[in-house]
Nucleic acid binder design. Structure first.
Lengths: 248, 248
DNA sequence: GGTTCAATGTGTATAGGATACACAATAATA
DNA sequence: TATTATTGTGTATCCTATACACATTGAACC
């Protein structure tokens, strides 16, 4: 991976630079989901003075908000071809309760556009930004206190992800290219927060006709070796266009 | 209805006033849906110099974006307790192709938050704003050219509405309090853009257990008088909380 | 090497909802 | 009063979702 180049010139303080580079009052925050060892993770940043927050950033004057989100994601994860979707814009004037910045551009009110991303855990090499001391995965079950309304942003992202299962087979973005049926099952169970019958789950998944069963098994586990599967990209894309679960 | 009070002092030109009152670079646009005589309508404004656009406005410094949308809707329709939902934020730097304003605040790039509203057609008395000569309902099937990306905004709103049918019985907001089953059917058919079997439709609607069949019929039509129904608010709210169509 | 254990692979029986379609009833019109 | 188009209501069938059973197998333990 190429060495990440800082966005900032470093000569002038952050709150001055922002003013000339970015749109005022507008930010982008990303809820980046990964899946590892049977649990759903979110990538969080820790500021140098302690509190945790979502990876986020600002919108350049000539940049689309989608592009901003892509850029932010690239900076934190090193990935660029990933699933990224805007899900809500947060515009309460009190949303940034407890803001520390007291002067300049950054001390003002910000409306933030929330995106959620689905990334393959193993391909991510978390990168803190220059304001942060850490960038690490947290289990969604045990997220620490977050600044501002970021906890609500995560909650809404998670809910959106949950709902999207109905028309979007999420595994394609969160799992490695080869995966087993139990792994896919585990993913769905953690996102939904409930157990599913593995036999009926398998039937339903296969009936979507977007999976290819490989002639390999995943060995090394303590028990019977499960078959590996991969997504059939063509059929997957076709299914996505139509929507999986059009109940009307 | 109380006479609408203008938002603006009228002494200074619009593009100067905005700067002090509103957040820069940020706007709100509303896609207001109504249903009348068997077809789905959208409320559009016509500028004094010709082109059509969505009703929209800006965000006051101490106002949430939701509040802005509510205010805009109130100004154009006179309604305040209505279904209003944010559905997408549009942030392409080129989205305002052909902008006429050449100076000041309003000539700058704007990111706009899109809301869609569902209102009862008969209760709306469309009000143009001071920049507009007309505020009228248009059939969604035959919308005129709109400025900027407003046509795409309408398209996405319509699509969102369509998808929301799965977990949200839209009739509650778009129809008068008493309505017939054929009217509800017609509404669904126009939103979906396809015919439905009226008998199966009725069974499905009744099975949701949110409708109350009244002991009245709607007379005046040329044929057999259909029964009137109304929503059971309590059961409706309860069903909304759970989600209607939780397929997982 | 044989046994045990826990997980996977595969099948079947049943219930319930979705779909297709049939026929009687009725309000206005001629 | 007959006609017509629409509404009210029911049924038969298909398909999917769900519940559950049993054989298979890789690793670990003796």
């Amino acid at each position: 991976m190429a060495k990440r180049k800082s966005e900032f010139g470093l000569k002038r303080p952050f709150h001055e630079l922002g003013e000339s580079m970015f749109l005022p009052h507008l930010s982008v925050d990303c809820v980046i989901f990964g899946f590892h060892e049977g649990s759903l993770k979110v990538l969080l940043l820790q500021w140098k003075d302690g509190p945790w927050c979502l990876p986020g950033g600002f919108v350049k004057h000539e940049e689309s908000i989608d592009r901003s989100a892509i850029r932010i994601l690239k900076e934190r994860t090193g990935l660029d071809a990933i699933f990224l979707k805007q899900f809500h814009t947060f515009g309460d004037p009190d949303r940034e309760k407890g803001k520390r910045f007291k002067k300049g551009w950054i001390s003002k009110r910000f409306v933030t556009v929330g995106y959620y991303a689905l990334v393959e855990y193993s391909k991510v090499f978390p990168q803190p930004d220059q304001l942060s001391s850490a960038c690490v995965w947290w289990d969604v079950q045990s997220i620490p206190d977050l600044i501002y309304d970021h906890k609500q942003i995560v909650a809404l992202a998670l809910n959106t992800l949950r709902l999207s299962l109905n028309d979007h087979p999420v595994g394609y973005n969160l799992l490695p290219s080869k995966f087993t049926m139990p792994e896919l099952l585990r993913l769905y169970e953690t996102i939904l927060g409930q157990e599913l019958d593995r036999r009926n789950f398998q039937k339903r998944m296969l009936s979507l006709d977007i999976l290819i069963k490989l002639n390999e098994r995943k060995t090394g586990g303590a028990h019977k070796a499960p078959f590996l599967y991969r997504f059939d990209k063509k059929k997957y894309d076709r299914a996505m266009k139509q929507g999986l679960n059009q109940s009307w």
